[in-house]
Write a protein that binds this DNA or RNA. Structure first.
Lengths: 121, 121
DNA sequence: TCTATACTTCGCCACATAACGAAATGAAAG
DNA sequence: CTTTCATTTCGTTATGTGGCGAAGTATAGA
């Protein structure tokens, strides 16, 4: 019960759903997620921790950068089902489409530049 | 997005997940849900309202009694998927099994007696 | 019509959660 | 080894949520 509840609680927030949708197609660096969601780095960090603890997201640290991705083959059944649910039902949402667009722009910017600009703001 | 969020938020509470599991096999009267969950009637009423607004539960009033059931044929796709997720992943949980047991006892009691006893407590 | 009763709504309280900025952490670069 | 900087942790605040009991609503029965 508690593992399922961790999943449903993790899904019960708009910004976390947006983050999961962004990770559909590719691994992303924290600063890229921060940029698209438009939230403070500390806030996004907390969201990603909640998603990770539910098993919905995996993370990998490379130097100063933290990369997030959806779990693949290895994921537990409830996790896979939850991610399928999210992907299937949000793909057509306005929010997901807007985020896709913004993400394309963000991905076209050099990552180091992106991070530095965030600091300045 | 908001409709999906209503669903995930509705699923993000242990007592609401328990209520959904109880409704798997049969329609139940409010007092029966109250009895198994062991919560105040007003609290259960609020939970059921949240489930109804997400479309996860349907209700029908018959005289003084309110009956709840899961939506069938008519349910929207996300609702069906969410309910499948819950059923598939909680069927084996300790909590669901305990609730099943308690529910069998509750169902064997005359409903009017059950309600009256709740008032007295 | 009056009472009993099944449920809901309201008002309140305690606690959880999301948000931010500041400070801490840790890895790379100078 | 000091600085830079991407990210996390911490402390705080505002808002949301779950819980209860009391009062309200609506229906059945006397």
């Amino acid at each position: 019960m508690q593992d399922i509840l961790a999943i449903t609680k993790a899904l019960a927030d708009e910004n976390r759903l947006r983050a999961l949708m962004m990770l559909r197609e590719q691994e992303l660096c924290a600063c890229q997620v921060i940029e698209v969601l438009g939230l403070a780095p500390s806030t996004v960090s907390k969201h990603m921790t909640i998603l990770r603890q539910a098993g919905l997201v995996q993370a990998r640290k490379e130097g100063r950068w933290m990369y997030y991705r959806l779990p693949q083959r290895s994921a537990a059944k409830p996790v896979k089902e939850a991610l399928s649910f999210v992907k299937a039902n949000l793909a057509e949402s306005v929010q997901a489409k807007q985020d896709d667009k913004k993400l394309q722009r963000v991905l076209s910017v050099d990552r180091e530049l992106l991070c530095k600009n965030q600091i300045k703001k």
